[in-house]
Design a protein around this nucleic acid. Sequence first.
DNA 1: CTGAAAGCGCTAACAG
DNA 2: CTGTTAGCGCTTTCAG
Lengths: 341, 341
Amino acid sequence: MRVTLEEIAKKAGVARMTVSRALSGKSYISKETEKKIKKIADEMGYQPNLIARSLSIRKSMTIGIFMPKTKNIFLDVYITQILSGITDIVQEFDYRIMFFPYPENGRKKGLYTSIANSKLIDGMVLLKTKMDDPDLESLASSGFPFVCVNYRKKDDKYNFVDSKNKEGARLAVEHLVSLGHKRIGFVAGSPKETNAVDRFAGYKQVMSKYKLETKPEWIIDGDFSKEKAYENTEKLFSGKSMPTAIVSSDDYMAIGVMEKLKEHGLSVPGDISIVGFDDIELASYIHPQLTTVRQPIYEIGKSSAEMLLNLINKTKNVPHTKYLDVELIVRGSTSSPAKHK
Amino acid sequence: MRVTLEEIAKKAGVARMTVSRALSGKSYISKETEKKIKKIADEMGYQPNLIARSLSIRKSMTIGIFMPKTKNIFLDVYITQILSGITDIVQEFDYRIMFFPYPENGRKKGLYTSIANSKLIDGMVLLKTKMDDPDLESLASSGFPFVCVNYRKKDDKYNFVDSKNKEGARLAVEHLVSLGHKRIGFVAGSPKETNAVDRFAGYKQVMSKYKLETKPEWIIDGDFSKEKAYENTEKLFSGKSMPTAIVSSDDYMAIGVMEKLKEHGLSVPGDISIVGFDDIELASYIHPQLTTVRQPIYEIGKSSAEMLLNLINKTKNVPHTKYLDVELIVRGSTSSPAKHK
DNA sequence: CTGAAAGCGCTAACAG
DNA sequence: CTGTTAGCGCTTTCAG
């Protein structure tokens, strides 16, 4: 049988409570008994039952991470980098991590609040939140601590960490414009994610600033999927005119686009320049290396964890909004447009 | 306040236990009261306190995943693919997942058993286990359910899922030999991981089978790190002779080696052929595409989860050992050795 | 500084 | 079929 406080108490000839106090060290205890008890606990190999403790103190010391479970789930570098950041922070404060991947479609209704009420976790981080998520509003109203990652909503009930997506897209387009491009296409991410919407907005903003046309036939629906981007790029070849450059809402889709272009015998950047978003590891391994907007993904993970822990422990008036900087990384996939066009 | 069994019981005019039974559906209850209770529970938005349940039934319905926390941790595709496999299986059986990344050096002594005794988890999966892990033996002796991934030990107390590493290395070398190579080098993984040791053994086996020399100067210490492999490849250039081909214990290191060779003006496979191990996503994006031994990483994750759940629920005599097949994927990084050498 | 009593919210076990 | 009692192992609270 496992050793409990009770058994240590017996052996030490004291009350259970005294043992608890001696071991937690959060209360006045004579040095003597403390030492004695600690020694006995050590000898017996005592390890507190953390479930029992959680029940008693009404805290699980655990945070939950929620994310849609796509074909890729963890394979997606974006998510794994965020996890890495979250983990690093959370462990510092002795919190544990529980994972809640949910089916992308047909998720159990009220998942967030039901897990929140289960007392399994003290707070949650939401990854890849969709704007039409049916459970988000009730979570926000419930007051349960949570942070959305790369999501944005002007509402005091919402807490989030996002990067400057709009600015990122602007940097990308400005870069292309400065190279002399005028016909610039765009690969859109999921229309249900605020960061995709923001990037699109940034693109349109700069285009209109320079009075450049944004033809619908140059807008590719990619939904943050390399495969979709690859397929839908086909449509460029049935249109009347081709763009000389394309901004993609993420690197994976940019790669999908490049594959399709290559298949049609076009060269990057010779025929078409491409800019990605994220700066995933792959970006510098493909040929040509991808010019992209770097998001500090790992930092986003860290920030979201910090925010969540502050929310949980209400240390002070926690800012519940944070935007991180992005940066344009120029590599080989962009150049001035071909003269002959 | 949160709604508990007690409150539902009051409202329904029955005992707490009756409510528990009605909701769990695991006991005889009149259809009538069951329906009534369920309705009330629903209206009140009841969600069981899972912590309390765990304490009572003495099961957490959670498994733990342990892994060394390197600079990369999740960024490592190998680990993330395994996680993906584990997640898919575990969720099917309504188990939850908790993460325990630990510092690679200076891990708290007795971590496994202390977590095991904390009752937070019902079983654990160990990733990247080192052969000299000081806590493994006591875990194995404790009888607590656990499975090692890509680890191998002839001992009934140990459970593991591994791939046929030795055979994989053999396939790689045989491939090179069949192309005509005789001077074949090797990039070793961590000498503390059985899979690295096995791959090395497979390499040496085939080399000696064909009476080929394995010069120490052709053996590169990579420790499963791309950076180390990159650096240590330098030593090839101070030796008297160069290999015409190199087998690497994983793809990342193979990439590191290729970078170094390229830096010295050597071409792959023109001057030196390279074979990797794992078949990570990057392998087919680099130039030239990497010939490699594919490990079914995702499947390994699934198998380990299945094994663990069987161990936890002792459904039957669980086999506690499993070896998965590997496969040689031939791509552009290998060719016949250059004539002029 | 230490102890006793009570309770966190659930379920197992035994009555009825 | 339903209720009662007891207990999971810890901490909080209140006495002393």
